[in-house]
Nucleic acid binder design. Structure first.
Length: 257
DNA sequence: GCGACAG
DNA sequence: ATCTTGTCGC
């Protein structure tokens, strides 16, 4: 991968660049989603609390004006939710934001951050959707296929989907529908708080994804993984901006396809 | 045709 | 995502 990878504290050098072999147009990106779509596996349990499993949260922060993106990957112990590893990566923004093509904007930086980890996590939780997507290939499914690591998504808003409001208690859930198709769950993670939207990414079933989500939300609406990754990528972006970015420091990223 | 639309 | 002030509550 490319970009500047670093464990926290933040990068001393600034990195960027779009990966070679990464879609440049919406048409190319959609074609890539169609190619990957049939490879998604919607089954699997993910790591168990018993065997010392780990879960990683990934998130990204942007500075559009400076064309910078900072990604973070934070690994937690599934049983204790303690942080056991973390890494960040800063680079140039590789793709514009287009609803339905979010993966092409976020994943290059996320892969760079994951590459900076000491050990591969047993599961990855994304901010956003997996198969709940117009072409059934949201970023969580895409990342799962690219890494081979079980992955699912937890989104904060319904996107284009519909649902009946779940009961008011933690654990209550209802179907997330794309027309008549069941693509995920509206899951209440805390009593009386807005639900989150869970969908399978790759290598983890929807029921297991919901179970993992509840395990990761002992005290907040959003998973601990997401919260940790969110704050870390913001700090990494601020640090990169503080240091200033020099295009000459941008190095080439490897092939991601 | 005009919005809406994960982050 | 990001821009943005104060405010209510645990």
């Amino acid at each position: 991968m490319g970009g500047t990878v670093s464990r926290y504290p933040p990068p001393v050098t600034t990195p960027p660049t779009r990966p070679a072999c990464w879609p440049r147009t919406e048409a190319e990106a959609e074609a890539e989603q169609q190619r990957l779509r049939p490879l998604v596996d919607r089954r699997g349990p993910g790591p168990s609390v018993a065997d010392g499993g780990t879960v990683a949260g990934v998130d990204v922060a942007y500075d559009d004006r400076r064309d910078l993106v900072a990604a973070a990957a934070v690994v937690l112990d599934v049983a204790t939710l303690r942080v056991v590893d973390q890494a960040t990566a800063v680079s140039r923004i590789a793709f514009p934001y287009v609803p339905g093509l979010l993966a092409f904007r976020e994943l290059p930086a996320v892969l760079d951050a994951l590459a900076g980890l000491r050990t591969a996590p047993g599961l990855i939780v994304c901010d956003g959707y997996g198969i709940a997507h117009p072409r059934r290939l949201g970023l969580a499914s895409h990342l799962g296929l690219l890494t081979g690591i079980p992955c699912f998504g937890v989104a904060k808003t319904p996107f284009t989907f519909t649902h009946q409001p779940p009961g008011h208690h933690r654990g209550d859930r209802t179907a997330l529908l794309d027309g008549g198709e069941d693509v995920g769950r509206a899951l209440r993670t805390r009593d009386g708080v807005k639900p989150v939207f869970v969908s399978t990414g790759h290598g983890v079933s929807l029921d297991h994804a919901c179970a993992h989500t509840l395990n990761l939300t002992p005290r907040h609406r959003l998973p601990e993984t997401t919260r940790q990754a969110d704050s870390l990528c913001r700090r990494a972006l601020a640090a990169a901006v503080r240091q200033g970015n020099d295009p000459s420091m941008f190095k080439e990223r490897g092939r991601l396809c």
